[in-house]
């Protein structure tokens, strides 16, 4: 068979290298990289820079594999939702089969390489994270329960634990505090998105809380989770990962976050539509800054510790 006979598709639909990168959900990957990096640095064991780099790279690749497998499984609903219909599979650039093959290959390779570069526990935890995101969240719970986001949040919360494990090879309480921070942050972050991406989830039949229990309930849930998150985030300041810098960041950011959640709770749909969901959009943007600054503060405390400045000691 010559190349000429294999001239399928048009040039607009030809997948470029960037389309394959898009399958790995680079924006989610950036969160994975950053939180895993903080977990690795916050660990009390020094890591060789190249091994640390490789650990983060393979954790990111594992996250990318999860993203690709999620896009393979959810291709049908991605075609319906406005937010996702330009992804490579719905756009007709990459086939579902190729996406699954890429996801499986990257998943296997990232787990194996993380085991070799660091230790078996880190590799096993990465494998579990991929399994949790793809099988437990995407295949099983996403279309079955309105608590999908709560459970899915766990998958996104594992990277700091994997980073810590990559450095130490053993478990401790501190990485689970970072896990709890991401875990409790995820529901209000996504529910705010669901509020202003109004009909997307309804059309796709994904049982988001906004669809199954209505918008007023979602607003109440956002406030409830934000209160618990604030207690957790400020409380973490007095643990091994915290310190004065973290405490200042946590107090300021949680006050702002609580205020945002309070505003969302007090509004109804008429008020929200009047200003095109300004409060919900603002809360969503703030949530990105919220998580970034909390982890940046944990990182600062960890980096200052060797100089005798970080933490409470």
């Amino acid at each position: 068979m010559s190349d000429v006979s294999y001239n399928s598709g048009t040039s607009e639909n030809e997948a470029q290298f960037g389309d394959f990168i898009e399958l790995l959900k680079p924006r989610v990957m950036s969160l994975v990289v950053f939180t895993a990096f903080v977990g690795l640095i916050a660990a009390p064991v020094p890591v060789h820079p190249l091994i640390g780099f490789c650990a983060i790279l393979f954790i990111a690749l594992g996250g990318g594999a999860s993203g690709a497998l999620n896009m393979w499984w959810d291709a049908d609903i991605d075609r319906i939702m406005r937010r996702t219909r330009k992804r490579p599979i719905p756009a007709g650039k990459i086939s579902k089969e190729d996406t699954m093959a890429l996801g499986c290959a990257l998943a296997g390779m990232s787990v194996m390489m993380l085991c070799l570069a660091t230790n078996l526990m880190a590799g096993a935890m990465l494998a579990f994270t991929i399994f949790f995101y793809v099988v437990v969240y995407s295949m099983w719970l996403k279309r079955a329960t309105p608590q999908n986001i709560v459970i899915g949040g766990a998958a996104g919360a594992f990277p700091p634990v994997i980073g810590w494990l990559a450095a130490t090879g053993s478990m401790a309480v501190e990485p689970w505090l970072m896990f709890a921070l991401v875990f409790m942050w995820t529901p209000p972050h996504f529910w705010a998105l669901a509020l202003f991406m109004r009909n997307d989830y309804d059309d796709a039949g994904v049982p988001m809380l906004t669809v199954t229990h209505g918008r007023p309930t979602t607003r109440r849930h956002i406030l409830g989770y934000t209160i618990v998150l604030a207690l957790l985030a400020v409380g973490a300041a007095f643990t091994e990962i915290g310190g004065p810098i973290y405490l200042v960041v946590a107090v300021v950011m949680n006050l702002a976050f609580l205020l945002g959640a309070w505003r969302i709770w007090r509004r109804d749909e008429v008020m929200a539509e009047a200003d095109n969901y300004a409060a919900e959009r603002g809360f969503f943007k703030l949530s990105l800054l919220y998580l970034f600054l909390h982890f940046l503060a944990i990182l600062a405390e960890a980096l200052l510790k060797p100089l005798g400045l970080g933490g409470w000691a």
Binding site: V4, Y6, N7, E14, A15, Q16, F17, C54
Partner: peptide, 25 residues
């Protein structure tokens, strides 16, 4: 050469760079 080769150039170069980086790592 064929138009197909031009279309896939970016993809192939990208893959080559990834493989080289992997060997280096």
């Amino acid at each position: 050469t064929h138009e197909l080769h031009h279309r896939r150039l970016g993809r192939n170069v990208g893959l080559a760079l990834v493989l080289i980086a992997f060997i280096g790592i």
